[in-house]
Amino acid sequence: MHIPNGLLDPKVSAGTAFAAAGVLGYCVAKVRQALSAVVPESVLAGAGNITAGSKKLISSFAENHLMRMGAIGSLIFAAQMFNFPVNSGTSGHLLGGVITAIALGPFSGSIVIAAVLAVQSIFFADGGIAALGANILNMAIIGTLFSYYIYYFINRIFRNDVGFYFGVMLAGFSSVLLASTACAVEIALSGSMPIDRILPAMASVHSVIGLAEALLTVIVLEFLSSMKFELEGRIKIE
């Protein structure tokens, strides 16, 4: 699903890059807001060694959250390295968008997947640098942020464990299918291949990959829960 260089029209590359940058910027702002602890100036003055202008401190929650982002990011990076065969000549790998979104929250999840894609593109030539915006839009935003809300709404409707697992599986499946559909549309808009050829081809392969993604998402989240890893994006139903 990683689009290489040369497949996208410059207009599509630029458009997707702007869209990705805009949404990622919003995600970064939301995460900063959630992690910044605002401390009254009177408290800072009492601390003595902090300059008068400093009003925001990094809390231990924020420190732990950043470490969790790094840890989950490195695991997703590793998991994306291993391909599983789909049919002759085609293989797939875990996307991990819904895993990161439920483990870390949707905004942090998108940032982590975007960072993984950037590292893969810059250091491992997995996905073109010119197509990085499109890849972030497809996998970090549609495959992570948007797909999280599929889980969110299903969980809100069912309000039990069945709803959680069903939501996770459907979100995992949809994340791959939606990201691959977006990828097909971008390639078609660039004129590299007609939509009636690329869309069925992408959808058929990625619906199989999506099934594996759905299953792996449940397994990984269950594993993290069993290890007492706090799933920050998990909806708590009273």
Partner: peptide
Amino acid sequence: NYRYNDNLTFDT
């Protein structure tokens, strides 16, 4: 390495 809790440690 980052020790998340007694059950889980991440490393790179």
